[in-house]
Design a protein around this nucleic acid. Structure first.
Lengths: 158, 158
DNA sequence: CTTTTTATGTCAATATATTTACATTCTTCG
DNA sequence: CGAAGAATGTAAATATATTGACATAAAAAG
């Protein structure tokens, strides 16, 4: 019997997660942005979220807890990259939106640095390799969501 | 042009990392063990490390910082799952080793829970799927190590 | 043999991440 | 309408994770 493939797969995923945060944060070091802030800012540049997105929806999109986002958003707000506005139709809900400064940081500074980073981190990956890897990540992600009581009701397809 | 594949791949990897920690920690909830402690204990059960492994070597193996391990090891030591002994030939070095209690926790409680978790998280994955996914994770991991100044000199093959 | 450099582990500061608890506000039901 | 219930965001406690700084000890240099 070969060494346990499932165990090997998960250990590699664990190592990849560690290295992604380490190398990713270092790639954006000069802009003082972490991978989590990167994920948030990247989400906010999506056309669908340009008008603002609620904290809960953003948390579901990124697959982190609402409570976690509070801290990240506070730091981004303190750096004036993001602003919180009260939703018109719901006084509980805060709509998170990029500021002009945030949009500029993304377009002028982060986007090129991220492109360079992808270039290096995915060196040797053909288009087919990327598609296959995304396929497997989607596959395991669906299983994770089925395992997670918080996500299992959310009906958005992958 | 399709939506940027590299960006999509990294976003999925980011989501997978979040979900792996969330669902993994929940799977071992009743044993009060997190995914990081799981990784450490799992490493220490390897035959090669049974006699004890230095903090720096363990950090390199798990691909986390030495400084980070200090905290995890302290908590595991406080729970008596792990012990630190001074290396015979080097008074700076601490050899980390599983205690009997730690070995028992792993074999009696964690191993079965982990097997169940793998079963669910990898549902629908054939042996070939796992092998392919491991291949891609290894591939990206090599690129990450090339990007990381700390790991680049370490000569251990994947 | 002393001085310098390197290796090893830990501490401190900062940023995630989780769960639990809670204040507000909206919704629903009587 | 008024009370129970659910939804929304945040605060607090705990556990990772990082880098920078440091004490100690080994190794290398002179």
């Amino acid at each position: 019997m070969p060494p346990d493939l499932s165990n090997r797969l998960f250990f590699r995923l664990y190592q990849c997660a560690n290295m992604m945060h380490k190398t990713g944060t270092r790639a954006l070091e000069e802009h003082h942005v972490t991978t989590q802030q990167w994920a948030v800012l990247g989400a906010l540049t999506r056309p669908a979220f340009e008008a603002g997105i609620a904290v809960g929806d953003l948390a579901a999109f990124l697959m982190v807890s609402r409570q976690n986002l509070t801290g990240v958003l506070s730091r981004l707000e303190a750096m004036h990259y993001v602003e919180r506005t009260v939703a018109e139709n719901d006084n509980r809900s805060r709509l998170i939106r990029l500021t002009d400064k945030g949009r500029s940081l993304w377009g002028e500074n982060m986007r090129p640095a991220i492109a360079d980073y992808y270039e290096e981190a995915l060196e040797g990956f053909s288009t087919d390799d990327k598609i296959h890897m995304i396929h497997y990540l989607n596959k395991i992600l669906r299983n994770f969501k089925a395992l997670d009581p918080d996500s299992s009701r959310s009906s958005e397809p992958l």
